[in-house]
Design a protein around this nucleic acid. Structure first.
Lengths: 164, 164
DNA sequence: AGACAGTAGTTGTCAGGACAGCGAGAACTG
DNA sequence: CAGTTCTCGCTGTCCTGACAACTACTGTCT
């Protein structure tokens, strides 16, 4: 947020100690920009926001058995709390349904409906295209590799989920 | 969000067409994780959230003349709308004050107070430390360089600010 | 079995962000 | 200089996310 007019790191090799901050800024801006565009696009074309895709994608990955609220909350990227109402909305739209858990009457199983799966598939395909356009195509394959390798630990366990 | 258990891109060089998606995921998770930790830390230690720092930092960069609401909205990273109430809160906390614009009675100039500058400096210093810990120290200098160079266009003009 | 702690999910309540509409003022036009 | 249009920031209203009770149920311990 500061020093916004400095040249890229490659132009000032003496500032090695500060380079991490430029890297951070890049990550921050790239994600903020792409997410905003992707969210707008999804609301416009699919009729629901990115948070819904987050939930639907987890359920699509989980298979036909669905997921319990608790499991869903653990794996979802955006929503840390307030999952109840989010699922309420998605259920009201008919993309998901709640079922009792066999053997635990406290629990609730969230399952994709047929329409939910279709809408997810369509939205996810479109989402990939948007991200590819807003992010992927702006970089070279070598850059993809470099970023992917460097940032891989952040989404592969590593305590990335909740806290330290 | 899918394929969450695959090895990193470096382990499956044949999937070159898909590597951008892993890079995206890395960017997404890295920023989400660091931002969440940073926001929590800031609320806890500085008493205000990251959105305030965003505003304060822009004002600190802008110099003693301050910024008009409109300019502030253009450069702020997080807040797209609703800047009025955000500035209301920051003003109520005494970190900022509104002044009339000489020669345009519609406009409002937002200026840092002395306390605002002090609080900004402290919060920003701490914020850097948190980001360095949560992001910087997890990567090598070479990786910082690679990411910084690749993602630099996203925050350096390029239409990265608001829309296409 | 009865008491007790732990777990699962929902609900109440409130703060923050999104969006549309508003009035005041400025700029442009004839 | 009157009329129109545009800009600037504020306000009303709704929607979503955060946090804290609260209910229902499970499991354990004696």
């Amino acid at each position: 947020m500061h020093d916004s007019d400095q040249p890229p790191a490659s132009d000032r090799p003496n500032a090695a100690d500060e380079t991490w901050f430029d890297a951070w800024r890049g990550v921050l801006f790239a994600s903020a920009r792409a997410l905003r565009v992707a969210d707008q696009d999804m609301v416009e074309h699919d009729g629901f926001p990115l948070t819904w895709l987050d939930v639907l994608a987890q359920l699509a990955d989980a298979g036909p058995a669905g997921l319990r609220m608790q499991e869903l909350e653990e794996v979802a990227l955006f929503t840390r709390g307030g999952l109840t109402r989010l699922v309420d909305r998605i259920e009201a739209a008919g993309l998901v349904r709640r079922e009792p858990v066999h053997g635990d009457r406290r629990g609730v199983l969230v399952v994709l409906t047929d329409e939910g799966r279709q809408r997810h598939d369509a939205a996810f395909a479109r989402h990939r295209e948007v991200i590819e356009r807003e992010f992927g195509r702006r970089l070279t394959p070598a850059q993809h590799r470099a970023i992917s390798d460097a940032l891989w630990p952040f989404w592969h366990g590593d305590g990335a989920a909740t806290s330290e």
